[in-house]
């Protein structure tokens, strides 16, 4: 996986030369487009062949390569502690976050980290240095899931704070109201951020395979509910289905790169799928 790169689907505005397509024209060897000559233009970019054929002056412009600023937004609310297997949802999430940060820094891009619950707990701005990577890893290592989630306000705040185009990678269980969440995605996309979402679900949350009456206690609020799973199972699955369907549709609408992952899946596999898909899409876009 170390040979793979984290690519973006949109042109970025970086401060230095990098692996990613820039929103501005630059000096790379990759032709971008023609434009009419304007006084003051450097004549070395004038296309003399076109002038010979058409007797008009056209300037050749080339793509610019720049670096990437990526924000890994990690949900650290108490619901991330849930598990029915070996690893909690939070363990799974910070493995993804750490791996992506590592890949970004090692390919010369800047990686930042935002840990949030109902408020932003810790925010590390994107930097490209190995020291910064270590700081991210230390933060991930020390983070403990607790408290309630306020995903919507966190994402809106983040959208306002990020000034340059960036890659925003959200890792969460997304247990919030869909309309508010989609508004956040819309907000981020408005500022031309490339948004990717890792939606983490446990197999038990998906199958709801309880047989006896259960007292369910909300991991975030402590609210409890005693019910017979056989009675509510179908309604629960219906609600979950509607939720996932609406979320997937909203993500498609706002061009959000949505990935549903189950905790019993290999996180390397999930990440590989994510990276390969983006690389494939980037190459396809250049053609």
């Amino acid at each position: 996986m170390s040979r793979l790169t984290v690519s973006v689907r949109l042109p970025m505005l970086g401060s230095v030369t990098g692996l990613h397509r820039s929103a501005t024209r630059g000096s790379s060897v990759e032709f971008a487009e023609y434009r009419k000559y304007a006084p003051g233009d450097d004549l070395k970019f004038l296309d003399w062949r076109v002038f010979a054929r058409t007797d008009r002056f056209y300037m050749k412009e080339f793509e610019a390569d720049t670096n990437l600023r990526a924000y890994v937004v990690l949900d650290t609310s108490a619901s991330m502690k849930f598990t029915s297997g070996r690893f909690t949802r939070f363990d799974y999430a910070r493995r993804i976050a750490a791996t992506l940060s590592h890949l970004l820094v090692h390919q010369g891009d800047a990686a930042g980290l935002v840990c949030f619950t109902d408020k932003t707990l810790r925010e590390l701005p994107p930097r490209r240095t190995p020291t910064h990577l270590r700081q991210i890893l230390d933060t991930l290592s020390n983070a403990q899931p607790q408290g309630e989630t306020n995903l919507v306000s966190t994402l809106h705040g983040l959208a306002e704070r990020i000034r340059q185009r960036s890659l925003v990678i959200l890792i969460s269980d997304l247990f919030t109201e869909i309309p508010g969440l989609l508004e956040c995605f819309k907000h981020l996309r408005f500022y031309k951020h490339d948004v990717a979402v890792f939606h983490l679900l446990d197999r038990q949350e998906f199958e709801f395979d309880f047989s006896r009456p259960v007292r369910f206690v909300d991991m975030e609020t402590g609210v409890d509910l005693i019910t017979d799973p056989s009675v509510v199972r179908d309604a629960y699955l219906d609600a979950l289905e509607r939720y996932l369907s609406t979320l997937a549709h909203g993500c498609r609408e706002f061009d959000v790169d949505y990935h549903l992952a189950y905790l019993d899946q290999s996180y390397e596999g999930v990440l590989t799928q994510f990276l390969l898909k983006r690389i494939k899409r980037m190459k396809g876009g250049k053609k």
């Binding site: 991330m80 849930f82 247990f175 007292r215 975030e220 409890d224 609600a239 979950l240």
Partner: peptide, 16 residues
Amino acid sequence: YKTVHWAAMLFLLQAD
């Protein structure tokens, strides 16, 4: 009953 700490209460409350 047995007690289960549950994250997806959003759907469970809707289902109930």
